[in-house]
Design a protein around this nucleic acid. Sequence first.
DNA 1: CTGAAAGCGCTTACAG
DNA 2: CTGAAAGCGCTTACAG
Lengths: 351, 351
Amino acid sequence: MVEGGGEHPKSRGAARRAQRRGPTMEDVAEVAGVSRGTVSRVLNGAFHVSPESLAAVQKAMRETGYVVNQSARSLVTRRSGAVAFVLSEPQDRLFEDPVFNVLLRACTQILGEEDCSLVLMLASTPEERSRVIRFVQGGHVDGVLLVSTHDGDPLAAQLDSAGLPVVVCGRPPAAGLRMPYVAADDRGGARLITQYLLDQGRRRIATVAGPEDTAGGVERLAGYRDVLGRRAPARGIVRATDFSIAAGYAAMTELLDGCPTLDAVFVASDLLAVGALEALHEAGRRVPDDVLVGGFDDSAMAAATRPPLTTVRQPLAQVAAEMVEVLLRLIAGRPASSRVLPTTLVRRGSA
Amino acid sequence: MVEGGGEHPKSRGAARRAQRRGPTMEDVAEVAGVSRGTVSRVLNGAFHVSPESLAAVQKAMRETGYVVNQSARSLVTRRSGAVAFVLSEPQDRLFEDPVFNVLLRACTQILGEEDCSLVLMLASTPEERSRVIRFVQGGHVDGVLLVSTHDGDPLAAQLDSAGLPVVVCGRPPAAGLRMPYVAADDRGGARLITQYLLDQGRRRIATVAGPEDTAGGVERLAGYRDVLGRRAPARGIVRATDFSIAAGYAAMTELLDGCPTLDAVFVASDLLAVGALEALHEAGRRVPDDVLVGGFDDSAMAAATRPPLTTVRQPLAQVAAEMVEVLLRLIAGRPASSRVLPTTLVRRGSA
DNA sequence: CTGAAAGCGCTTACAG
DNA sequence: CTGAAAGCGCTTACAG
C-alpha cells in the first residue's frame, strides 16, 4: 500500500515538486479489472465497450477520482482542447471599449459549454505578436478567434499563413486573406439609423465617423453616405482619431465648429457618442430638441447617457456564438463560411 | 528525404488530421550533430553545455524552425505554463463592470511577459464551477487568479482545498481560507473621500453602499462610518442591490426620498455613481452645487460623467502586477503573503 | 560536458 | 468487445 500512495511522497525528487500525482488510467483499469485500452475507450465515446465494462470503469473512475491528464492526451491526439482569443489592437483602444469585453465573455461561456478553454492573448506590440505566433505554432491551441479592427494588421496575415483555423471578428483586416469572418452588418446598421434621422424630419445630418483604418470607420460612414449622398451637409463629416470618449468629444467640437447648423448627428460608436453628447451639452445644444444623436453598438452605456442613446444594436452574443461555431467546424475539419449578422435600431431618448 | 517531410502527408490517417508535424527535438539534434539531451539542455537554461554545442543547437533550431511541443514538456514536468483567471461572479455583475476588464487585461499582459498564458474561465453557475474544479484538478494550469467579490463563494473554498496555488483579488471571500490575497485599501479609500466631503464643509453626507455580501460593500461602508460615526445622517445609508448603473439610480432615488436634506453622497463605485448622478439630475439637484458626489474606482467612465466624477483611485495595474507576482512565487514554491495597496483621491468636478 | 535510456500518461491501430 | 504494444515529444537522473 505504499506504492503510489498520495500520503507519502516518493523520495526521489518528490519533495522538490510536491505535486500530488492523481490516479492514472492504469489505476482506474486495475480497480475496474480491465485494461488501459478499455478505460480509454469509455473516455472517448464508449464505443465497442460492453455494458459491464462500461459500468465497472465508470465506478472505478468515481472511486479513484480520476481526471484525465490533458498533456498526455494532447501529446498523442495533437489537440489541445483550447483556442486563443487574440485581441490585436493598439493598447489605447483596448481598455475602454465594452464591445470587446462582451464578445470575450460570450466566447468564453460558449466555449466552456463545449468543454473547450479560451486563452486570452493581447497583441498590441511586436513582441506580443511574435509571442502569439510562437504560441499558436507550438500547438498550444487548436484555432484562434481574432479580434482585429484595424486594416493592415500584420498579425492577421501571419496567422493566415500559420495554417491553423482562424476566424476573425468583423470585416477581415486585409484583402486576400482566406480566413472566414463573422461580422455585424455595419453598413446596413448605419443606413438604418441615418434613414431614421431623416425620417424624423432632420435635414442637416452630420456624422462622427470612426478611424479610416477600421471596419467600423469605413463601413458605417459608407452606410451614412448610402442614405444621404449629396444631401450630407458641407463639413458634416469628421473622423474621430479612435473609438474613445475623448475622441468623440473632440470630433463633435470640430463638427459644431465647421457645421454649426447641423440638426442631427450619427456617431459611429456609443463610446464616441458619450463624448459627443458632452460636447453638445457644453455648446448649449439640447438633445434631442436641437440636435438628434444616434450611436452605434448598443453597449451598456447607451442606456445610461443623458438622454439615453438611440443607437444601432450589434448582436454581439450572436456574433460570439457564430464565431465559435465557425471555428469549431474548422477545427473539426468541416467547411465553414463567413457570416454577416443583421443589426437593428434601438430607439431611446436621444433621437 | 521523404521521411518526416511536411509536404507529403503520411498516408496512415494523416489526411483526416492534416496537422503538419513540425520538427522535433530529434530533428534539431540530428542537424546540430548532438543528442536529444543536449538540445533539451540548451532549451532549459543551457547549463553544462559547451559553447560549440550551444551554437550548433541554436543554429539548428533556427534552420529547422523548431518550436517546443508544450504537451510533451508538460507531461514530464507537470507544469502547464498557464494560469487560470477565474471570474466567480453572478452573470449580471460581470458584463458591466470595467474594473474586472482592466484587471484581466493587465494580468494577461504581465503574464505574457513572463511567457505564461492566461486561460479565462467564468464561474457563475454550478456547472461552470464544477468545470473550473475539474480543469484545475486536471493539471491544465499551474495556479489560479481568483476574482470573487461576494462572500460565501463555494468556489473559493473548493479551490482552497484543491491544493494548487491560488491568489484572490480583494478581500478573501470567506474566513478560514489560507490563500493569499491582493487588495486595494477599500476602507482607507472610503475614509479618504468621506473626509474630503467633510472638509468641503458638507454636514449631511449620505452614502450609497454596495451589496453587503461583497468586500466593496462592507469595507467602503466601514470607511465611511470610520469618519462620520454618529454624524451620519438618519436614513443616510442605502445599499445598492449590485454594482450596476441601474442599482445606483434606484439607491439614490431611495436616498433622496428618505434623506432629502443630504448635501453630499459617497457612492461606493463609479458605475453606481453614474446611476446616482442620473437620479440627482432628475430630482433637480445640481452637482456639485447642491450635492457633492464622490465615487470609487476611478474607472474610465469617471472622467466622462457630467460633471466628471471625483473618486477614489484603485491602483488596478498594480493590483494585477502583485497578484501575478504572488501567484508566480507560489508556483515556484516560494512563500508569499497577502498585500493591501493604497488608494488615492482623484479630484474632478463632482465634489 | 554529453549520450543512452527510462518514463511521463495517454490513444490507437492491430490482433484476437 | 478487449488486451498488448507501440508511440506521441519531451526531461532528467545516471553514467561516463
